[in-house]
Amino acid sequence: MANRLSTIFLSLCSLTLAVQVAAATLSGTVESEGKALADVVVTATAAAKNLKLPPAKLKSVTLSLDQKSKEFIPHVLPVKTGTAVFFPNSDEIQHHVYSFSPAKRFEIKLYKGTPTKPIVFNQAGVAVLGCNIHDWMLSFVFVTDTPYFAKTDSAGHWSIDLPEGDYQVALWHPNAANPDQLPNENVHIPTQQPLHHVIELKLARQSGKPPATLQLEGYSDGF
């Protein structure tokens, strides 16, 4: 029930956002080695000369970061600075979520079915989240100062509604091979051209998903 409510709430917020600031839609696709790439965060930051841009009147949006079947869902969560993130626990077991990233250091004990206070992400950067009990669990909260951001879906597609002006569009992915050389370009809105980017990934298979078999999931040597 709570999940459904938060989904509705989120949809309403998104709708409000669209009504308030939509002027043109910037969209694009991202791929890696010929395949659509999900979980890419795209941010659009207004250029300094973009003076006619009205200040974004965004309330901080409450999103939820869920645990289901010993996995963080979503794996990547972009939020604006100041956003409060709730951590409901849908599993029958406890989780112990923590982050030691400079962007946000915290720990939160998640009991089954017990609501906890949200964590407010008030500094731009990437918070890498883990679970102290289930070592494979992994999630990335991408905290950005701009109100204009999106995340690619499973088809590698993204779109952002933007007022007219000049923007710097930047991409980020947790598994990028060269984090310092990710796509970053200037775009003038309105534009009719959808963007297309290619990101090279690291070899590491950090999916954040439980091991593929019970043989591996059911054992820990404590080392």
Partner: peptide, 20 residues
């Protein structure tokens, strides 16, 4: 197994008993 959570880059841990 003793494995307290840490919000810094340093982590401590321990095992006590019979193990590999």
């Amino acid at each position: 197994t003793y494995r307290p959570v840490s919000t810094s880059a340093w982590h401590v841990g321990a095992r006590l008993g019979m193990f590999f």
